[in-house]
Design a protein around this nucleic acid. Sequence first.
RNA 1: GCCAACGUAGCUUAGCUGGUAGAGCGGCUGAUUUGUAAUCAGCAGGCCGGGAGUUCAAAUCUCUCCGUUGGCUCCA
Length: 671
Amino acid sequence: MSQISVTLPDASVNEYVAGITAGEVVTDILGRKHGCVAALIDGSEKDLGAELHEDCAVEGILANSEAGLHIMRHSCAHLLAQAVCELYPGAKPTIGPAIENGFYYDFAMEPIGEEDLKAIEKKMQLLARQNLPVLREEYTDEELLDLFKTNEYKLEIINDKLEDGDASTIYRQGDWYDLCLGPHVPSTAKLMHSRLLSVSTAYWRGDQDRESLVRIYGTVFPDKHMLKEYLQRMDEAKKRDHRKLGKDLQLFHISEKVGQGLILWTPRGSIIRQELQDFIAQELKRQGYSQVFTPHIGKLDLYRTSGHFPYYQESQYPPLVERDLMKKLADEGCSCSDLSNLMNEGDIDGYLLKPMNCPHHTQIYASQPRSYRDLPLRLAEFGTVYRWEQSGEISGMTRVRGFTQDDAHLFVTEEQIAEEVLGCIELVQIIFGTLGMDDYRVRVGKRDPDSSKYVGSSEAWDLAEEACRQAAKSLGVPFIEEEGEAAFYGPKVDFIVRDVIGREWQLGTVQVDYNLPERFDLTYQGADGSAHRPVMIHRAPFGSMERFVGVLIEHFAGKFPTWLAPTQVHLITISEKQIEYATKIAGELKAAGIRIEVDSSDNTIGKKIRTHRKMQPAYMLILGEEEESNGTVSIRARSGAQQNGVPLADFISAIQNEINEKTAAPSIVSE
RNA sequence: GCCAACGUAGCUUAGCUGGUAGAGCGGCUGAUUUGUAAUCAGCAGGCCGGGAGUUCAAAUCUCUCCGUUGGCUCCA
């Protein structure tokens, strides 16, 4: 019997009999309770059951490693499919990959509800307990086609693979098997700690025109404890949902009567927005921006010139057409599609709710002759724009149909691009830094080389993409470049943050645009006396006020830093005897510019604290006999920590300092 | 837009297979004057998302529209 040399993770080499399995090697080096679900053989992931016939390097993949979790999730998707197939004999499994934090599996079957998940879960547990070995089996193409002959989805996958010349294998557990490349855990017993999370639907192969399938999401962990911890974390996350907190803290409201995706900022939410706007306006002043204001609508022709009208018609509110013209067209028997054609051709004009601010800003630029000495010209506006988002996409404040961008357009010379893009990016960093948002990623969006939706010359695109890449590089944080993520008019640098449920939102964005200046024929006179074309930079550090505040609510879990808190200090009297004292203190705080609320009701102190905690003021001041006779206040922090007997003047100067410094969390009371 | 689930007072919710609504919180009114996460009592709030249908009878069944949620698709 021949021997093979197996290199171990510590670089030592062991001799084994050829044909030994990876699992046996792992057991040999780590012991029986090795906690591995698969193995790396010469760097590629394989089953523990894989036989070794040649010299190689072997390393166990621990269940609680990233790679190990991924394999478990994938295996658990199989377990789910097995359970579903046993419970619903008509169900046809399609695909079921591991995803971040879990897995899903899509089935062609009759719709099921959340309540059905329990039974499936139970079945999975049962199958896990049976400790079914998960076996890899190889078949010829013909055999594979035969094995899956009743499942047209699997057949489609197999046929695609055959076209690509790829071989495939199946994995078997008990009587059930699935087409899969693996690797998988050695037995279903590794999948005891799973949980099904939700059921929804998805299209076969993500194609709207194809069948819709039942998708079941779930997750799995190596032990009970990790599963519990994960579920608790998800639970916590749900409590932070800005849609819930927005209601509880009275920050915004969406009325069916006003319309889907249209945010009504209530007084408390408006304070946050206003503070943020003031903050950014201050930075803009420092960076040499000019404030402008432009109307909410513009002529269709403006957007024909900019290209937005033809490019993004399906995501715009329909144009407004003059009443008399409408009537005339109607009398002439003009149909809706005729009208649409007339508008497309430019034969009739109308007005559009602005989907962007840039076209308006180009007209401010063009309002007078510009010299190179005027550049860069930086025009800033909190501009409200309207986009007809698909109804199913609308959600809370993060995906809406009307929103206000903290927009600006910089008109620059080509030489100024790099520096100005950098300035924009720094602005984003200042904002994110101040708010303690450090969990973001940066993406340089480039054009998709295979698509024709882009405008402008290829040379201009190359230059612009390079400017964005350089700017992103200078950030000192990792960034990725993604093809196909550019706007139709130019490349961009996006700042993407995650919400508590793990969804990603694009917030800040900086975009280089060679296109609009061309389309609007914008020029400036150079030092050489001839006309040159400026370049436009679009940038919005928050992205939109709605989305930003939505994400911010979740980021702070409603516990805003003092400078943003809708009410900063709540005054709580112990009894009616202190009403006068509370009124006096309230007056002084207000005079100091602090946002307060006074509760002098006859509720018990416990009740009042309970009630006011919910609104998350930065501080509560407790006012009783003791405070009144000493002329002091007792400060209660959100945590419950308290500092008694503080002179009011001391508190005022401390909180003012905290507000001016935009301290990330209230910190006057030491814990 | 597509698929699915859901929609009962301001909020959270009870109401089984049809017999026209119950509660807690909040609100208001009293009593109470309180030292740190719910003082007691009383009162007022509902066209059960809108509309249509089936039925002697609909919050409960059917259809349709609106909205919400979870996904899919999309996101200048």
